[in-house]
Computed example of a mutant assay.
Amino acid sequence: MLDFKELSMDGTDLERLVREIFVREGYETHWTGKGPDGGRDLLVIEKVQGPLSNFERTWLVQCKHKAYSGKSVGREESQSLVTDCKSAKADGYLLVCTTPLTTGLLTTYKELQSNWCGTQRDMGTGNSSTQKMEIDNNPKGRLLMNSHKENHVN
């Protein structure tokens, strides 16, 4: 089982880990500037090539590392979500967190998903146990986590 407390308390290891996962999966990634919480957001470019068309989708990825405090990620974490996505010209949003989301934040995300600018947009929401399971069950995720532990020992 993945223990998020093995990552640095300031969240930079989580940000790097998430970026490494996207890079290893073939996505183009770019850092944004530091946010109000001191963390950096990640822009992930998804290049879709289909039989009928090719297009790109930009995802704003935010990481919230609260494993040490154990606090849930709450509604206050999303106060600038729409503004952040518009500023980054992002088509979608993904939140990666190490603790569960509050029901208030889940409700906010569901409302945003159904009402976002009057168009259909993709928004990824989940909780840390789902993400842990996905990383733990994915052989690439296990290898990446082991590599991350070896390269970022305190």
Rank of each mutant, 00 (worst) to 15 (best):
K5A: 06
L43R: 09
E134K: 04
S69D: 07
R57K: 15
R40G: 00
F55K: 06
E28W: 13
C117G: 00
W31N: 07
E20A: 15
M123Y: 04
R75F: 08
M9C: 05
Q62Y: 07
Y68T: 08
G74V: 11
K110F: 10
E111W: 05
G124T: 07
L106A: 06
A67Q: 08
G124V: 14
N146Y: 05
R121M: 04
L81H: 00
L94T: 06
S69T: 15
K140I: 12
C85N: 03
D91G: 15
T102V: 13
S72D: 10
D13M: 06
L52G: 05
D13T: 01
K132Q: 07
A88Q: 09
K64Y: 08
T83Q: 08
W31P: 03
L112H: 11
I45H: 08
C63Y: 06
L42Q: 00
N127H: 05
E77C: 09
H148S: 09
S128G: 02
L14N: 12
K149A: 09
T98M: 11
L2P: 04
N54C: 07
N146P: 01
A90L: 07
M1N: 07
V82L: 10
T58R: 15
R16E: 13
V48P: 00
S78V: 10
G26E: 11
G33C: 05
L94N: 06
C117A: 13
A67I: 00
I45L: 14
K86C: 11
I21L: 13
Y27I: 06
